Computed example of a mutant assay.
Amino acid sequence: MAQDLEAAYGLDTPDDNIALYRDWARTYDAAFAEDMDYVLPMHVAEAYRDGGGTGPVIDLGAGTGLCGAALRTLGISPVTATDLSEEMLQVAEGKAIYDRLFTGNLLDRLPVGDGTFAGAVSSGTFTHGHVGPEALPEVLRVIRPGGIAVISVNAAHWSDKGYDAAIAALEGVEATWKEVPIYGAASKGAHAKDLSRILTLKRSVG
Results as ranks from 00 to 15, higher is better:
residue 2 A to G: 04
residue 6 E to V: 04
residue 7 A to H: 01
residue 8 A to W: 02
residue 9 Y to S: 03
residue 10 G to L: 01
residue 11 L to Q: 14
residue 14 P to E: 12
residue 15 D to F: 05
residue 19 A to W: 05
residue 22 R to C: 06
residue 23 D to A: 13
residue 23 D to R: 11
residue 24 W to N: 03
residue 26 R to S: 11
residue 27 T to G: 09
residue 29 D to W: 13
residue 29 D to K: 13
residue 30 A to P: 00
residue 32 F to S: 02
residue 34 E to T: 12
residue 37 D to Q: 11
residue 39 V to P: 00
residue 42 M to R: 15
residue 45 A to G: 01
residue 47 A to M: 04
residue 48 Y to A: 03
residue 48 Y to N: 01
residue 48 Y to S: 04
residue 50 D to H: 09
residue 52 G to T: 04
residue 59 D to K: 07
residue 61 G to R: 10
residue 63 G to Y: 11
residue 63 G to T: 12
residue 64 T to R: 09
residue 70 A to M: 10
residue 73 T to S: 15
residue 74 L to Y: 02
residue 75 G to S: 06
residue 80 T to C: 03
residue 82 T to N: 04
residue 83 D to G: 01
residue 84 L to R: 12
residue 96 A to E: 09
residue 96 A to K: 14
residue 98 Y to E: 02
residue 104 G to F: 14
residue 106 L to F: 15
residue 106 L to D: 07
residue 108 D to I: 06
residue 109 R to P: 01
residue 112 V to A: 03
residue 112 V to P: 00
residue 114 D to S: 11
residue 115 G to S: 15
residue 117 F to S: 00
residue 117 F to E: 00
residue 118 A to H: 14
residue 119 G to V: 05
residue 120 A to L: 07
residue 120 A to S: 09
residue 121 V to D: 02
residue 122 S to Q: 13
residue 127 T to R: 09
residue 127 T to S: 12
residue 135 A to P: 04
residue 135 A to E: 05
residue 144 R to F: 01
residue 147 G to F: 03
residue 148 I to P: 00
residue 149 A to E: 07
residue 151 I to L: 14
residue 152 S to C: 06
residue 152 S to W: 11
residue 154 N to C: 06
residue 162 G to F: 12
residue 166 A to C: 02
residue 166 A to N: 08
residue 167 I to N: 04
residue 168 A to N: 10
residue 168 A to M: 08
residue 170 L to K: 06
residue 171 E to Q: 14
residue 171 E to C: 00
residue 172 G to P: 00
residue 175 A to N: 07
residue 176 T to S: 14
residue 180 V to S: 08
residue 183 Y to H: 14
residue 185 A to G: 10
residue 188 K to L: 01
residue 188 K to I: 00
residue 190 A to T: 06
residue 191 H to V: 11
residue 192 A to T: 13
residue 192 A to S: 15
residue 194 D to R: 09
residue 195 L to T: 08
residue 201 L to T: 06
residue 203 R to L: 10
residue 204 S to L: 12
